[in-house]
Amino acid sequence: MKKKAKHKVVGLEKRKAIAGYLFISPFILGFLVFMIKPFFQSLYMSFCDVEVGAAKFELHFLPTVENKGLFDNFYYAFRTDPDFVRLLTEELTRMVIYSLAIIVFSFFISLILNQKFGGRALVRAVFFLPVILSSGVMLGLESDNQLMDQIAQSVEEATAGVSITDGLQTILRTTGVGVRAFEKVFELINNIYDVALASGIQIIIFLSGLQTIPRSMYEAAEIEGCTAWESLWKITFPSISSLFLVNWIYTVVDFCMRSDNQVIDKIQTFMLSLQNYGVSSAMSWIYFIIVIAFIGITSLLLSKGVYYYD
């Protein structure tokens, strides 16, 4: 009797496992056909000379082609192409700086939005608006809006030296401390618009975390004589530290996929206009490996600092 009962449980579990696989089968299919296959094919292609004809395409593995080495496509990307290395370093530094700024900014804003005041829902809606509006092609249109640039330029010329950041900049420059570092900070401050546009989702994620922290914790801390500043670092920060990891990964990934990313632009030019599939694959792989390594290392470091409540 006992044996039979046990057998039945196994049967149910087995059926559940089969049902589970049935449920996720579309994903498995897509993953194998549209992800894994192209994934390895594009890796292989980066070592190939791709020839596209009218009815078919041929892959010539580079060592088998005369006068070509295995890494020729990579050599081309790094050594021959005039822009690639410059664009790559530019985009990567931009990614690091902006991601940091976005995390700090969204944490700060979510702290403010977590307080109670009139019109909170409206402000939240406005901050979330860019997630909807600055997605896809809209972002690229926004950033190369020449008219705005011209206006900004003429305003800058007319008010030369009057702007606050410029004044600060000259003061800090004359002190001679870390000019390059300051330059990046000023660039960020001048581009706060871009940061605000890119931090809609992050703000909401932080807010949802902040709302799960019980109020009683803050009250207890306050009674014990904890100042607001202390409870920010001792209560708020540890409680939502795991969300920093989530947000960090989301921000970096989001940044890689932005449509105004110049490296992606370069890769697409090579593919669509020049039809040079080999080099474009090599370029995408270089970019991908650097980004994955960056995400891996930083999230490993971050996850060390994450505090888990339970």
Partner: peptide
Amino acid sequence: MLIVIIPPQLISTSLHLHFRF
């Protein structure tokens, strides 16, 4: 998680050819 992280641009070259032929 991998398909969240992998930029679609990476496999776009291959997919492009995949659907072209």
